[in-house]
């Protein structure tokens, strides 16, 4: 679109992607901005420290969790330690899982686990990165507890009737991650190849690990 185009033609500019600034800040957005600015103004933190922290948070990815799951698949003793203490098990692999306790729940032929936080959007960010928008949406948070099988089906995951669907609502001080079942046909794969089968969504429990091949 040319800079000098005139507005004597009837098109609606609202059809374009709005900028973030087009909407007024919500109360909490304004509070967050204000606290951030105050901390910098008073010299508690520097702007660069704030930026670096955001960069660190954004850099977290599901790769850390995937690495742990792949190790758990090939090493049952490691899996036992992970089920007992995720943070310590992460440290064994050189992964910083942060200070918030995380509990791993394991899928089996009898039980399919899925994670939700109905109250807000608690999520094991250190191991699987930032939560997807749908995880934070009211729709996922409310429907996963009352009609989990329908929600899973919308993700393409149909759980047989004779398998228990176990929903974990992380309402309190812990975070949860799912250890998916190891896919059939993955026997010959090394740990790195196995980790490639472990997606963010299967560690939330809305899908299974990727099929081999």
């Amino acid at each position: 679109m040319a800079e000098d185009h005139t507005h004597d033609h009837p098109h609606d500019h609202s059809q374009f992607q709005p900028d973030l600034e087009d909407k007024p800040l919500t109360h909490y957005q304004a509070m967050t901005e204000a606290v951030g600015e105050l901390l910098i103004e008073k010299g508690v933190i520097s702007g660069d420290e704030l930026r670096a922290m955001l960069e660190l948070i954004d850099a977290k990815s599901p790769a850390a969790g995937a690495k742990m799951v792949a190790r758990a698949w090939v090493d049952s003793a490691f899996k036992a330690r992970m089920m007992d203490d995720v943070l310590a098990a992460a440290e064994e692999l050189g992964i910083d899982a942060g200070g918030i306790p995380i509990l791993a729940v394991e899928n089996t032929p009898e039980v399919h686990n899925v994670i939700v936080c109905t109250l807000c959007s608690c999520y094991p960010r250190q191991l699987i990165g930032l939560p997807p928008d749908w995880y934070k949406a009211r729709s996922y948070r409310s429907r996963t507890v009352c009609e989990p099988r329908k929600v899973l089906a919308e993700f393409g995951t149909v759980i047989p009737d004779d398998v228990e669907v176990r929903v974990h609502d992380s309402t309190a001080d812990l975070r949860y991650m799912v250890i998916p079942q190891r896919p059939a046909g993955s026997e010959g794969l090394d740990e790195a190849a196995l980790a490639d089968l472990v997606t963010r969504d299967c560690m939330i429990g809305v899908t299974l690990a990727k099929a081999v091949g």
């Binding site: 507890v145 009352c146 009609e147 989990p148 099988r149 009737d161 004779d162 398998v163 228990e164 669907v165 176990r166 929903v167 974990h168 609502d169 992380s170 309402t171 309190a172 001080d173 812990l174």
Partner: peptide, 28 residues
């Protein structure tokens, strides 16, 4: 803090996902 397991069918009227399904919530 406890993990408390509920029958999902006990939590919702007309739950149609089967009687095995459960919901685990952390409760103080």
């Amino acid at each position: 803090l406890y993990r408390v397991s509920f029958h999902t069918a006990d939590l919702w009227q007309d739950y149609d996902g089967g009687t095995k399904d459960s919901t685990v919530v952390d409760v103080y």
